[in-house]
Design a protein around this nucleic acid. Structure first.
Length: 422
RNA sequence: GCGAGUGUAGCUCAGCUGGCAGAGCACCUGACUGUGGAUCAGGUUGCCGCGGGUUCAAGUCCCGUCACUCGCCCCA
């Protein structure tokens, strides 16, 4: 119907969707700030090289929007924030106060096939703690995530934060007799475990050169819920998680490994318990990233959460707020006729001065139409200022929820309206 | 990049082995010239995604194409 379509993988945010997005942002902001994190933002455009520095990343080559600007430079629409974060820290490493606690919520672009929970343009919460390498700081980030879930009303039986540690897995793989060169591939294999059938998974494992015995041991490893006890880091991590009082959301999961190469220690991701959605968020410790980009060595831990999956999950568990409540006005001032038109405007202006959200109907059309409009914008109160009211210095106040109506002196108006809004 | 499904009114969809293009919701008008959500009566709305083919006849069958959705890959 429309001549020009919207671009694939983008979303239009009509007021109801925009209200939910703002609500999500508000919750993210509250939680981030409650842990003392500071908001920051980077550019949406970066040189392609910034991402290329993150060695061999498919993200850049196949999933980024890259274009040549008018001077011939190769520019990318940012597909993620971490390289920007690393650059920003590197530029001011000596002036910044470590440990650094930063968070951000902004748009990102990835040229992917859109599907459920996946769009080409999306918003992402990024939050990082840079400058310390303790398991306790890993636990803090996991606690931030858990606190967010608690804040938006997602319960521990609905959401689980799965945690593992790459160093632990590396040493365990070493015990299996895997060469260091095989580990990256083995990690990918582990990551794919619950996405492929056991038979195909075993076949893939053997394709990597694992013996029958090694495959069986690996399967045993991935079924061992107590494996974390042999990692000093994870033992400390889980103690800290308890101290932070979020243990009900957190679980050890030997199969969690994360796709990104730069994670070095603890890794984690959040899933909903129904299993019908993709990972809600993912993150972990990256101790070598700063050095890799040319700064001084700095350890860090952080995670990213896209807005798309979390929105689906929030909807699934009935956690989204009522849109009407988010976008409603308090008062509709009706316009009775041409003669009193501007009297209504004056009244609306006064009430705005008293702090109400006030809509004044912009034309003297029939009252039923104006009342219907009041309904549709979810106004709680409608005011009528007709010839009778004007003659007597009064206003008619109708409580649209209770349908009660009274004509009162102007002096009492603000108080009566407050009563209606309670 | 690979695979599957779906395109019909503003929205959600029905439309059988080809035979006058439909329903619900929404919208408009009125019942109700100073009062909204309910009810009732009436009314508007279509390149049936696009192009071609078969047929007396195509929303329906065939071919192509575009778009969307869902998987795979990858990841937030």
């Amino acid at each position: 119907m429309t001549v020009i379509r919207s671009i694939r993988g983008t979303r239009d945010f009509y007021p109801p969707e925009m209200a939910r997005r703002s609500w999500l942002y508000e919750n993210i902001r509250k939680v981030s700030e409650s842990f003392g994190y500071q908001e920051y933002e980077g550019p949406f455009l970066e040189y392609v090289e910034l991402y290329a520095a993150k060695s061999g990343d498919e993200l850049v080559k196949e999933q980024s929007y890259v274009f040549e600007d008018r001077s011939g430079e190769l520019i990318a629409l940012r597909p993620e924030l971490t390289p920007t974060l690393v650059r920003m820290i590197g530029q001011r490493q000596r002036q910044l106060n470590f440990p650094l606690r930063w968070w951000s919520f902004g748009p990102f672009w990835r040229y992917e096939r859109p599907q459920k929970g996946r769009t080409r343009e999306f918003f992402q919460w990024n939050i990082d703690l840079v400058g310390v390498d303790t398991p306790e700081s890993d636990a803090e980030l996991v606690a931030v995530a858990a606190t967010f879930f608690r804040q938006v009303g997602l319960k521990p039986q609905e959401i689980i934060l799965k945690v593992n540690n790459r160093r632990l897995m590396e040493s365990e793989l070493g015990k299996l007799g895997l060469a260091a060169g095989q580990r990256d591939q083995a990690f990918r294999l582990i990551d794919r475990r619950d996405k492929t059938s056991p038979e195909k998974w075993r076949a893939d494992a053997k394709g990597l050169g694992l013996s029958e015995g090694q495959v069986r041991k690996l399967e045993g490893l991935l079924g061992d819920q107590n494996l974390w006890e042999s990692s000093e880091e994870l033992v400390r991590f889980f103690k800290a998680v308890e101290a932070l009082n979020v243990q009900e959301y957190v679980q050890y999961a030997p199969e969690v490994i994360r796709g990104l190469d730069y994670y070095t220690g603890t890794v984690f991701e959040a899933h909903d318990s129904s299993g019908e959605f993709r990972a809600i968020l993912g993150g972990g410790r990256y101790d070598d990233l700063m050095a890799a980009v040319g700064g001084e060595a700095l350890p860090g831990v952080g995670f990213a959460m896209g807005d798309v999956v979390i929105s689906l999950v929030l909807e699934r568990y009935g956690c989204l707020p009522n849109v009407d409540e988010l976008t409603a006005s308090d008062i509709l001032v009706t316009v009775f006729d041409e003669a009193s038109w501007l009297e209504s405007y004056k009244l609306a202006a006064e009430l705005r001065g008293s702090g109400f959200r006030v809509v004044c109907y912009p034309q003297p059309v029939k009252l039923p139409k104006q009342f219907k409009y009041a309904d549709r914008i979810s106004a709680r109160v409608a005011l009528v200022l007709g010839p009778e009211e004007l003659r007597e210095g009064k206003v008619t106040v109708k409580n649209l929820l209770t349908r009660e109506q009274q004509t009162i002196p102007r002096a009492a108006l603000v108080e009566v309206i407050r009563g209606c809004l309670e």
